[in-house]
Design a protein around this nucleic acid. Structure first.
Lengths: 144, 144
DNA sequence: CGAATCTCAGGCGAACTGATATGC
DNA sequence: CGCATATCAGTTGGCCTGAGATTC
């Protein structure tokens, strides 16, 4: 019988192995995991705040700030002041950031194909949906 | 349509949120994630080598060594020399280690129940099986 | 000899804590 | 006022690389 502990174990092992391979691929281009994650999130939606980036990346404000400063120095992003909330920054991808994301994304493609290779379309849908259920359960736990 | 990237994202987000909650619960007892993972692995099978522990924990030899030294100082494990291979150590749980594992495991139970709560028995089985498929795919990738 | 197991030193990415300035 | 956003300094856990000693 499957327990919550089995899920926790499986999640940890699967993530660890994937993460290590991802890191190793990105390192070949001089990038780290968090840098890639932030670029990917900005590709999905540009102009969001640091706080929103932090939440979506499941990271923390300090790490996000340090990473953004680095990405800014390398011309990948720009930080513009928010129009209505003068405490906040809006983060925007530059063209260079967009090109870099495409390059890194292509480099990771074979690994992501390997992730998908064990599943047919329906199984893959179910897996992602179930992972999202875990995310929701953990967010509820965070508050309760 | 679900892509490998969707799986990677879901896996990362789900793991990160779970890991943070786990760490926070363990910290209340003065333990870290790796310490708990090693105790849990030894609970499953006692007397395995450091190398085997490293592999099962998806960790690295240095972290495992440092963690075992700490656990040994606290009387949780003992390291006995291997009978036939004098390079290797066999790691064994002490009674105190066993009791400690039970305590930590009980502390994590509510969180693990929350992980399980979104699923019925069949869905949970499928999820764990699918996570294992990812593990296998990543291990194949490691070598190929 | 090469290969495997463990040890050791050093570095680093990334998370955490706690405090502070500023604007809502 | 409390609350939210971001910044700053310092610490830590856990992973990495690269070297070595020893034994298979």
């Amino acid at each position: 019988m499957t327990t919550g502990r089995d899920i926790a174990r499986g999640l940890r092992t699967a993530y660890m192995l994937m993460h290590r391979q991802t890191q190793s691929l990105l390192a070949g281009y001089g990038f780290t995991a968090v840098q890639y994650v932030l670029l990917a999130l900005l590709k999905i939606e540009d102009g969001i705040t640091q706080q929103e980036l932090t939440r979506r990346a499941s990271s923390d404000p300090n790490t996000v700030r340090a990473t953004l400063l680095l990405l800014e120095r390398h011309g990948m992003v720009v930080r513009r002041s928010h129009k209505t909330d003068r405490r906040a920054w809006r983060i925007l991808l530059t063209d260079k950031g967009r090109r870099t994301y495409s390059k890194l994304s292509a480099a990771l493609k074979p690994l992501q194909d390997a992730l998908l290779s064990s599943f047919n379309a329906e199984e893959a849908d179910t897996l992602v949906a179930n992972l999202n259920h875990i995310v929701e359960a953990m967010r509820r736990w965070e508050q309760g």
